[in-house]
Design a protein around this nucleic acid. Structure first.
Lengths: 338, 338
DNA sequence: TCGCCTAATTTCATCGATGAACAAACGAGA
DNA sequence: TCTCGTTTGTTCATCGATGAAATTAGGCGA
C-alpha cells in the first residue's frame, strides 16, 4: 500500500487501456459518447493504476477551480461556525469545495484577502469584513466574483447580503425596555472598527432605542470587547457587576459573549432574568441549551448562507445581473434569560 | 473597479515592465537575484495590471498545492471546531491553506475521502475516521501523505496521532466512582460504528471500569447517540431521567452532549452535581462557562493538532521516517458538575 | 584594453488535462 | 454498391508558471 506512485496521468491510464488520454478524459467526464466496452477497459485501468485526476491541471485548462473562499473573522465564534457549516452545505449543491480563511478581524488580513494574497485561486469569494468599511472601495478592484456579508459597506458595484443589524438591535433593546428594565447595558462595543461593522451598528441602534425611550446610557454601561469571545463576555459582565450601580439588563452583541456573561452571573449567584436579564444575538444552537436558555435575535443565518452562495453562483455563471443587495429577516426568539 | 480582466499573466506583466515572464517570476518568488530597479518596475506593473498569481499553474508545475485537507465527521461538534481551528493555526506556520471536508461519520464518505474522490488535489490529508476501522486497510492505497487522528485503527504503515481514549474514559469513570456514585450511566454509545472508534473505546473503558469496581451496568444506562450533538445529549438525559431508577451520575462521551444533558437537568430542576453528576469529554472552551462549569477530560487537542501537522509536514518533505504513532496526554479537569 | 568571473536575464521545454477540429469506423437507406 | 450521417476516438495546441540551462551584461584586476 501507499505506493510512491509518482503521479499517474491520463496518458498512463490510456496506454494501459489501449486508448488516448483524451478518451480517458471523455470516459471520466462522461461528456462524449464512449463505447461501453472501452469505458470498462478505461475504468479498470484507472482502478489498477490508482489514477487520480490532477485538479491543478484541470483548473489551469478550464479556468475553474471548483473552490470558493469564505473569509470570516474567526471560526471559533459560534455564529461563524454555524455560518461556515451552512455555507459548506449550500456550496455542496454547486459541487464546490469551501476554503475558510480567518481574518482575525484585522484590517491588514482583510485587505490581503481582497487583494488575493492570502487566497487560494478560487472561483469566488464570500467575505464578511469587519475592519474594512466605506472608503476602502479601492481594494475591491479585480474582485468580480464577490459577495459581501454583513452590512452594505461598499458603494461600489458589489453583491451584498445584509443582515438587518439595526432593526434587530432595536428589537432586542426595545424588548428589554418593554419588560420594564431601566438600567440597560451593552457588551461588545469596539471603537476601533468601521462604522458599518456589526459592532458599530448594533451599538448605535442600542443607543438610539434607549434615547427614544428617554433612558440614559452611562458611558460605563457600554462595555468594549474586541474579540467577542466567551471570556470577553464574562469579563464584560464582571466589570458591569463591579459598578456601584450595576445594570438590570444586558444586551450582548453576540451569543458567545452572552454565554460568558451568563457564566459570570451564575458564578456570583446573580439570578437571571430576575436580577439581571440577558439577551444575545445570533441564535446559535447552544442558545437553546444554556441555563437559563438564552433569549436572542435570530438573524436568518440559513438565509444568509443560501443567498450568498446562490448570488455567487450567479456571478460565476456570468449572468450579467447588476450587483444587488439582499436583506435577510430577523426576529426575536424569546426564551428564559430575558 | 471590478474589472473583467480576463486573467493577467506574468507575460503581460513582463511586457509592461520590459522583461520576460521568467523575470517576473523571479521577482515575485524572490529566489534569484534581480536588480532593484527591475524589481521596482515589475512590482509597479504587477500593481497597475492587478496581476494575481495563478495557483493552478504553479501547482501543476511544482507539484505542490499549498493546501492540506482536514477530514472530520462534523464541524458543528465543538471538539472538531476547536480541532479545525488549531490545525488551521498550525498549518499557517507551514504556509498551508486548510480545506475542511465533513464526512458526516458516514462510511461511504470516509472511503471517498481516502480514494480522493471527495478531495481537492492537496499536499496531504489529516483524517479522523469514524466508521472505518481495522480491515479497511485497502482504502489506504495511494495515500502516502496521510495522518490518521483518533485511535490506531490501521495496521498498515500510516502515521497515527492517538488520543488515549481508553485511559481517559477510565479516568472519568473512576472519578465518578471515587466520588461515591453507584448508579452511573453513559451517553454516546454507537453500536453501528467500528470497534476502534471513540464511541466504542470509551464505552468499553466505561464498562470495564465499572466492572472492576463491582458496579452493575444495566442496559438502559447505556444510551445510544449517533450524532453526539446537543440534542442527542438532551434527549439521552431525558430518557435516563424517565427510568424508574435514574442514575446518579452520567458520563457523556463528549462535551457537546454534556451541554445538552445539563440543559435537560436544569429544565427539570434536577440539581447538578448533587442529584446527578455530569462529566464530559473534550474540554472545549464552552465547558468552562456552563452552569455549573463542566468537569471533563482534557484530551490534549493542542498537541493533537501540532503533532498531526508536524508529522504531515515531515511526510511531505519526504523524510523517510517509518510511520509512527504518537500519543497525546490526557487529564481530568475537575470543575463543578461532578 | 583584454579576459574572466559573477550577476542578471532569457530561452525552452514541461507539468496534466481539455477545447476544437478532424479522422476513422460503422450503419442505414437508396 | 455508394453516399451520407452518426458514433467513437484521435491529434494538436493550449492554459500559466517554473526548472534547467544558456546567454548577456557588468565589474574588476592585470
Amino acid at each position: 500500500m501507499a505506493r510512491k506512485d509518482e503521479s499517474v496521468t491520463m496518458a498512463d491510464v490510456g496506454a494501459r487501456a489501449g486508448v488516448t488520454a483524451r478518451t480517458v478524459s471523455n470516459v471520466l467526464s462522461g461528456h462524449t459518447s464512449v463505447r461501453p466496452e472501452t469505458r470498462d477497459r478505461v475504468l479498470r485501468a484507472v482502478d489498477e493504476l490508482g489514477y487520480r485526476l490532477n485538479t491543478s491541471a484541470r483548473s489551469l485548462r478550464t479556468g475553474r477551480t471548483g473552490t470558493i473562499t469564505l473569509a470570516i473573522p474567526d471560526l471559533k465564534i459560534d455564529y461563524f461556525t454555524d455560518l461556515a457549516w451552512r455555507i459548506m452545505a449550500e456550496a455542496e449543491r454547486h459541487d464546490w469545495t469551501v476554503v475558510i480563511q480567518q481574518t482575525g478581524a484585522r484590517r491588514e488580513n482583510e485587505i490581503a484577502i481582497l487583494s488575493g494574497a492570502r487566497r487560494q485561486h478560487s472561483d469566488g469569494l464570500i467575505f464578511q469584513p469587519h475592519a474594512l468599511g466605506p472608503g476602502d472601495e479601492r481594494y475591491l478592484t479585480g474582485n468580480d466574483r464577490l459577495v459581501i456579508l454583513g452590512e452594505r459597506i461598499f458603494r461600489g458595484p458589489v453583491d451584498h447580503v445584509t443582515m438587518a443589524n439595526t432593526e434587530a438591535a432595536q428589537l432586542a433593546t426595545q424588548y428589554l425596555v418593554d419588560r420594564g428594565h431601566r438600567r440597560i447595558a451593552a457588551i461588545g462595543a469596539n471603537p476601533r472598527v468601521a462604522t458599518t461593522s456589526a459592532a458599530s451598528l448594533r451599538l448605535e441602534a442600542f443607543r438610539d432605542t434607549l434615547a427614544k425611550n428617554d433612558l440614559p446610557v452611562p458611558a460605563e454601561y457600554v462595555v468594549t470587547a474586541e474579540e467577542w469571545h466567551l471570556r470577553d463576555g464574562a469579563a464584560g459582565m464582571a466589570r458591569l457587576l463591579g459598578l456601584p450601580q450595576p445594570p438590570d439588563a444586558v444586551f450582548c452583541f453576540n451569543d458567545t459573549m452572552a454565554f460568558g456573561a451568563l457564566h459570570t452571573l451564575a458564578a456570583r449567584g446573580v439570578r437571571v432574568p430576575d436580577d439581571v436579564a440577558v439577551i444575545g444575538f445570533d441564535n446559535v444552537a447552544m442558545a437553546e441549551f444554556t441555563t437559563p436558555p438564552l433569549t436572542t435575535i435570530e438573524p436568518g443565518t440559513a438565509q444568509v448562507a443560501k443567498q450568498a452562495v446562490d448570488m455567487l453562483a450567479a456571478r460565476v455563471a456570468g449572468r450579467g445581473t447588476p450587483p444587488t443587495e439582499v436583506f435577510t429577516d430577523c426576529s426575536l426568539v424569546v426564551r428564559r434569560s430575558a
